[in-house]
């Protein structure tokens, strides 16, 4: 690899948006912020393939498009397979000397439904075959496009329309699938988690994902005001809280070697800075039922799984 890419805030601001305004995302939409930031990190000609989901719907409502790059909407389950095809074709064109550009990047976008659940098979296959593309999971932790149904990415205790918190269940009974770790287990060159609240980190990680040869997987935490039930002004605040409580720690794994990113490293080195998950849960009404008598133990369960996963991560990062 060449010298690491450096950028200034000015450069990023001045770089024209490739995911532009005028899309139809809700006020305070986390994924829309993620896409805009990620597209700022592109390094040249880029092709985007987008699974069915919120971002596909809101960015291409006839007769407009928010995309200033070639873009294809795929079915729900196959964005990684579609990206495989694009990448393979580019390879052939390059080999035959028919590709005008020295390099063309391929980015696949999918939400949590399209990644944790229906798209996992295609994603796993593409990772195993080793296609050179960046897969971006924008995780708003439920099927928001169809109206808030639980997914494999929905956290324990969250109320959705198919895991309603009530007398019988405390919201979703299961825990969130550790998808980024599953991708690390594929032994691909680059896996990272990122949050829209730490945009520089997100942009750097996007660029690293594009620069490596082979598959890269970026798990981006992207809150949804409609589905998580909080005020639209709180999106960034909640994203930050997820990192500060270690509900969603930031790290990267290069060829399987884990390392904590600065924002989480701070918490690792100064454990007193680690906020209790309660602070993160209480600002979202999807967890509101947990604060009523009856399901209080679920908050402890969430704290426990958060701590357990955090400690496992510290071990992987050789921090003890």
């Amino acid at each position: 690899m060449t010298a690491p890419w450096k950028f200034t805030a000015r450069e990023i601001v001045e770089k024209p948006d490739l995911f532009t305004s005028g899309h139809r995302a809700c006020a305070g939409c986390g994924p829309a912020i993620a896409l805009r930031q990620i597209m700022k990190a592109t390094r040249g000609p880029t092709i985007v393939t987008n699974a069915t989901g919120c971002m596909e719907v809101v960015s291409t409502i006839y007769p407009y498009t928010a995309w200033k790059v070639p873009w294809i909407h795929t079915a729900f389950e196959n964005v990684a397979a579609n990206a495989s095809g694009i990448e393979a074709a580019l390879k052939v064109l390059k080999r035959k000397g028919k590709l005008e550009h020295k390099n063309v990047d391929v980015i696949a976008f999918a939400g949590d439904g399209g990644t944790f659940d229906i798209g996992l098979q295609a994603l796993s296959g593409a990772a195993e075959r080793g296609h050179d593309f960046l897969y971006v999971l924008y995780d708003n932790e439920a099927y928001m496009n169809t109206g808030i149904q639980r997914s494999g990415g929905t956290p324990h205790g969250a109320s959705t329309t198919t895991s309603p918190g009530g007398k019988v269940i405390p919201g979703k009974p299961q825990f969130k699938k550790p998808i980024a770790n599953i991708m690390v287990a594929h032994e691909i060159p680059y896996v990272a988690t990122a949050s829209i609240s730490f945009w520089q980190d997100l942009i750097i990680k996007t660029r690293r994902g594009l620069e490596v040869k082979g598959p890269a997987f970026l798990h981006v935490f992207a809150p949804c005001p409609r589905g998580w039930r909080y005020h639209t002004s709180k999106t960034i605040e909640i994203s930050r809280l997820a990192v500060e409580t270690c509900v969603f720690p930031l790290w990267e794994a290069k060829y399987g070697e884990y390392s904590l990113s600065p924002q989480s490293k701070v918490v690792a080195l100064k454990p007193e800075r680690k906020k209790p998950v309660k602070e993160y849960l209480e600002v979202q009404r999807r967890f509101g039922h947990l604060f009523k008598p009856g399901f209080r133990n679920v908050i402890d369960e969430i704290q426990n799984i958060t701590d357990k996963r955090w400690n496992q991560l510290l071990k992987k990062c050789n921090i003890t």
């Binding site: 439904g113 099927y143 496009n145 169809t146 109206g147 149904q149 329309t161 198919t162 895991s163 309603p164 009530g166």
Partner: peptide
């Protein structure tokens, strides 16, 4: 979930 059948799943979940 899938539009326009999602409401059946939602009702059944409850």
């Amino acid at each position: 979930p899938i539009t326009p059948a999602t409401e059946i799943a939602e009702r059944m979940a409850r």
